[in-house]
Measured scan of single mutants.
Amino acid sequence: CHSECLGNCSQPDDPTKCVACRNFYLDGRCVETCPPPYYHFQDWRCVNFSFCQDLHHKCKNSRRQGCHQYVIHNNKCIPECPSGYTMNSSNLLCTPCLGPCPKVCHLLEGEKTIDSVTSAQELRGCTVINGSLIINIRGGNNLAAELEANLGLIEEISGYLKIRRSYALVSLSFFRKLRLIRGETLEIGNYSFYALDNQNLRQLWDWSKHNLTITQGKLFFHYNPKLCLSEIHKMEEVSGTKGRQERNDIALKTNGDQASCENELLKFSYIRTSFDKILLRWEPYWPPDFRDLLGFMLFYKEAPYQNVTEFDGQDACGSNSWTVVDIDPPLRSNDPKSQNHPGWLMRGLKPWTQYAIFVKTLVTFSDERRTYGAKSDIIYVQTDATNPSVPLDPISVSNSSSQIILKWKPPSDPNGNITHYLVFWERQAEDSELFELDYCLKGLKLPSRTWSPPFESEDSQKHNQSEYEDSAGECCSCPKTDSQILKELEESSFRKTFEDYLHNVVFVPRKT
């Protein structure tokens, strides 16, 4: 048989008469490798580009789960590009990614509803959504962080984005990388972005840091009482949809009607710091009717980097990364020049730590249904340095008659930039024990000054392991946590139920 035959053949030295091919099969003959313009397919066939392209389009058009959109890589027609490569849609070739590779997620039936953290986790790592997304989240724990972890990498949506009755959302900033909504599939009414009845939605994105392009379709905003109209108009300008909307697409009466839409800028007039305090004062603000001013709200939190936005980490279910302080308005003076500047002394802060701070007014709604208010920009203030805590785990070892090696770990709280350490030492008198000992005694162990690591005695271990207080009263049991108490109650309830079950099964009433 021919060298490319495997198993047997019907005619000697003829690659077209093989029972099976050793390498690849091409047009009725066995070959060692697939010549151009053919590609290896499933490690035994040679196919042309049209064959591989037909497989790709067949799966793409069917949208069946589990099928493969075949691509070409290293002269092979394979189910998908290997790690580190992405497909070129024009020629199906796998090309190296520039940075992290995109991950295209194809949605069944063309859309997916995100109504819980669990459903959001199914899209973790996706960068391109081939379909439409509907966000409908009523509640949950730590929602802002969970949504950002699972949806934060999405850069492109081919269909539309719909935010509907998501009472738990305060902001859409968890879509931190969303840059493009194509609108290839539109919501009824030709809408590519749809926001309806979101009672706590206050911000779409921080438009000073976020760009969003909507290729096709219109915007729809109705019944978002805490979303200011200025935020919607800003989205029109940034996304390129200005002029597409009709009169009733953006409701003037049901958007922002319960919001404090600040239209003035508060400026800080005085800032002073110490290692654990920050004193702030800002310019006074009074609405047209000074009785509408209820006070100020001061927001602050630790910020290692200057990239904080107002609604980071917030949701309507209680999660809030900001510390909020309510401040009463100052006494009002008739003389504008003698107006008191409101302020606040922030206490209990960490030394040498940068804080993000902003302040906003708290006002009631005027009778004319106009909203007044003022808010400052987010500023960054760093507390002063102070003395560091003591170095940890000092170790001293003498390696000769004239040297001592000293080692330690950095302090747990540096409280500033540590530039150097101060080492103090003092000579001590020799131990009298060394002169009084009889060095001729056998088995004498000389006193040693070398360091030995501390260890816990058996008594201390027994005390720590004991669940009861000892007789001397030195140790006591740790208080039980809520989960331990709940577990004990469940076990007790189970024992009672099981005992009742045994009584009912074992003891049967005697027939009379």
Rank of each mutant, 00 (worst) to 15 (best):
L186A: 05
T254G: 13
S338L: 10
H210Y: 14
V170R: 04
R347T: 11
I327S: 04
L147A: 14
L294H: 13
N248Q: 03
N142D: 09
L266M: 05
N320P: 09
R179G: 15
A251Y: 14
R138H: 03
F220G: 14
N399L: 09
V117C: 02
D197T: 07
D312V: 11
G110T: 09
K253H: 08
E236F: 07
T371A: 05
G240L: 15
P336L: 11
V238K: 12
H233V: 07
W352K: 14
A316E: 15
L108C: 03
E146S: 02
T323P: 02
L201D: 00
P336H: 04
S338P: 12
I114L: 07
N248Y: 05
K242S: 05
T323R: 05
K277Q: 02
Q121W: 15
P288A: 06
Y167P: 12
Q199A: 07
S338Y: 05
D335L: 04
V238A: 05
H341E: 05
L180Q: 08
K112V: 08
T383Y: 00
I114E: 00
K103Y: 04
M297F: 01
E109T: 10
E262N: 15
C228H: 11
D384Q: 07
N141P: 08
K242C: 08
D312R: 12
S319T: 05
K360T: 03
V325T: 14
L331V: 12
I405A: 08
P330W: 14
G343M: 10
Q199T: 12
L252Y: 09
L362V: 04
E156G: 05
E122Q: 03
A120D: 01
T213V: 14
R182F: 12
L227C: 09
G139K: 14
I250L: 05
L178E: 00
L178Q: 00
A120Y: 11
R281I: 08
T213D: 12
N190I: 13
E122F: 06
D249Y: 09
L279Y: 15
T241G: 15
G131V: 01
E264C: 06
F311K: 07
T113D: 08
S402I: 05
R281V: 15
A195N: 13
M346T: 03
D326H: 01
Q245V: 15
F299C: 02
W352P: 00
R281P: 00
S398Q: 07
Y191C: 15
S230W: 03
W286I: 00
V104H: 08
S376K: 01
A195S: 11
I232P: 12
F358V: 11
F358I: 11
R332M: 04
P288L: 12
I137R: 01
F221T: 11
S319M: 13
R347K: 14
E231L: 08
P351H: 04
H210R: 15
L169V: 08
L108T: 05
R272F: 02
E310H: 12
W408I: 06
A144T: 02
G183I: 02
T361E: 09
L143I: 15
K209W: 08
R332V: 12
R370T: 07
L172R: 00
T254H: 12
S333G: 07
N200K: 02
C228P: 03
T273L: 02
L133G: 00
L108F: 11
S376W: 01
F358P: 00
I163L: 04
G343K: 13
I181Y: 00
N255F: 08
N130G: 04
L294E: 04
S274E: 06
I129N: 00
A385H: 09
G110L: 14
Y191N: 07
P330N: 09
L212K: 01
N130W: 05
S274I: 03
L279M: 02
I134V: 15
S158W: 14
L143W: 15
F221M: 14
S173I: 13
W205G: 08
I163S: 02
N190S: 12
W408M: 02
K177V: 06
S401T: 12
Q203R: 12
V104T: 06
T185L: 12
C261D: 04
E146K: 13
S319K: 10
S158C: 13
F290L: 03
L204P: 02
G189T: 08
T353V: 05
R347D: 10
K337Y: 15
S239C: 11
G343C: 04
F299K: 14
R138A: 15
F296K: 00
S376R: 00
G243P: 02
I114Q: 00
S116R: 04
F220Q: 13
E368W: 12
C261G: 05
N198W: 00
I232A: 10
L252I: 12
N190A: 09
N211V: 08
Y300Q: 15
D292C: 11
D289Q: 08
R179M: 10
E236N: 14
R291A: 05
T353K: 11
K112P: 04
S333E: 14
W352H: 15
A259E: 04
H106M: 13
A145G: 13
G183A: 10
K407H: 14
W286E: 12
P411V: 13
T309R: 13
R370Q: 06
I379H: 05
E302S: 10
I154V: 09
K277M: 07
N224S: 09
N211G: 09
Q382W: 13
L212T: 14
N387I: 10
Y380V: 13
R179I: 12
L345P: 09
G256H: 10
S376M: 01
A145N: 13
C261T: 07
F299E: 13
R291H: 03
S321K: 13
E302C: 04
S119D: 12
F358A: 14
D393W: 15
R247E: 03
L392W: 09
S274A: 07
I181K: 00
P342T: 07
Y194C: 15
T323S: 08
C317L: 04
I357H: 00
P329E: 14
W344P: 01
N141R: 10
P287D: 04
E155Q: 07
S173A: 11
L161P: 02
E262W: 06
E246P: 13
I163H: 00
V104M: 11
S158M: 10
T118N: 03
D197S: 04
K234F: 08
T254F: 08
P388W: 01
G217P: 02
N255S: 12
I188C: 07
K226P: 02
S319V: 12
F174I: 15
K112N: 04
K226V: 13
E302H: 15
G139P: 00
T309S: 14
R370Y: 08
F175Q: 00
D292P: 06
D197I: 03
A385M: 14
P225W: 00
E310W: 15
K409H: 09
R247N: 05
I379T: 06
S269Q: 05
I379S: 05
K301P: 00
K177A: 06
K242H: 14
T241A: 14
N334L: 10
P288W: 06
I379R: 06
V324P: 05
Q199V: 13
E122S: 15
L406M: 02
N340F: 13
V128K: 10
L331D: 12
H341Q: 11
N136H: 11
L293Y: 03
S333V: 10
Y372N: 15
G348P: 09
P225L: 10
C317Q: 05
I250V: 15
V359F: 02
D335G: 02
R272W: 01
T213R: 13
I157M: 11
F296D: 09
L280T: 15
N200L: 06
L151A: 04
L143S: 06
T273I: 07
S398P: 14
E156W: 11
K301Q: 13
A120G: 15
P336R: 15
S321E: 14
N142M: 06
F275S: 09
S230Y: 03
T273H: 08
D393T: 07
G140L: 10
L349R: 02
S166P: 03
Q314R: 15
R165I: 15
T127H: 08
S396W: 10
M235W: 14
G348S: 12
R138D: 04
R291E: 01
M346N: 02
D328R: 08
K177F: 07
S116D: 06
K277G: 15
F358D: 01
S319R: 10
Q199M: 11
W322H: 12
F299Y: 03
V324E: 11
D384S: 02
T361Q: 11
H210W: 03
Y355F: 07
Y191S: 15
N224V: 02
N190E: 07
I181F: 00
S321L: 13
L151R: 00
P287F: 12
E246W: 02
D115C: 04
L331A: 09
S260W: 10
K267P: 06
